[in-house]
Amino acid sequence: MADLTQTQIAQPTPSRLRFKWNTIFDHLILIAGSLLMLMPLVYAFITASYDPVTIHREGLALTFGDELGSNFEKALFEKGGFTKTVDGMVMLKNSFILGIGFAVGKIIISMMAAYAIVYFRLRFATFAFWIIFTTLLLPLEVRILPSYEAIQRLGMANTYSGLIVPLIASATGTFFFRQFFRAVPEELVEAARIDGAGPVKFFIDILVPLSRTMIAAIFIIMFVFGWNQYLWPTLITTDESLFTLVRGIKQIVLTYSDAAIPEHGQALALAIVAMLPPVLIVIFFQSWFVKGLTESDK
């Protein structure tokens, strides 16, 4: 009994102390991790504020220079590339077309397919399911060559649809929506049927509004995915007026290694423009994005 009280009295002080040390340690690790993630962008952003000669001489910098505005301006509005026909704004526009077009197309097509699979009595439902879900097995990277060949034969090279549509040919979206629809209470469709709603009305009046957060989450994920596509745009767009920012990175890298005094500042500015929209979307719609990412993968 005496022992017991002693330990009870003796315990609190060291444990509280230890707790504090633990917390500080936790924060130190997290701060180190955050810096690891953040520093490259900080470096890039600050260095983008110098003229090319300085960068070529000094490398990455950590204090601001005075060329930031002009570098961004040149990156966005000065015609560059081999043919001097394309500026940053065109690539920005193309990136948005790819990101939004891909996300919207994917959501519409996969919602329709998931709706058909989940809510209809269909004799070949299982067959359709397997046809669609086998595509989950093979990422585009594995079948680039034949896909490229297919696009060539269809005459879709150097078109927006050739850029976007083949990327939609995987079932991720359909899979997400199928999971979500299956979790919607059964009674809702029954109540709607008794209320006189047919399949189209049920879809538009009830299922789509119910899926709003899911749609938003998937939109974010798909937009980022589409915006960041690299390999496919590299293959399918040879016409510079169709280049996206991420596709343009390759050109940047090539100039970087070739030129005597490469336009580092501009290149960095363009890289920042290339990452800013998806990064901002992910940061501002964080909770939707995280929810969509973690819940849809179950």
């Binding site: 209809f120 269909l122 049920f202």
Partner: peptide
């Protein structure tokens, strides 16, 4: 599939056609 699914014969096919055709052309 839901217990009380709709039984419309052509609508689900219509809904599946876009996805299936993309998959056939650009995947299979």
């Amino acid at each position: 599939m839901k217990r009380a699914g709709f039984t419309n014969p052509w609508l689900p096919i219509l809904l599946l056609v876009p996805q299936l055709s993309i998959i056939v052309v650009f995947f299979y």
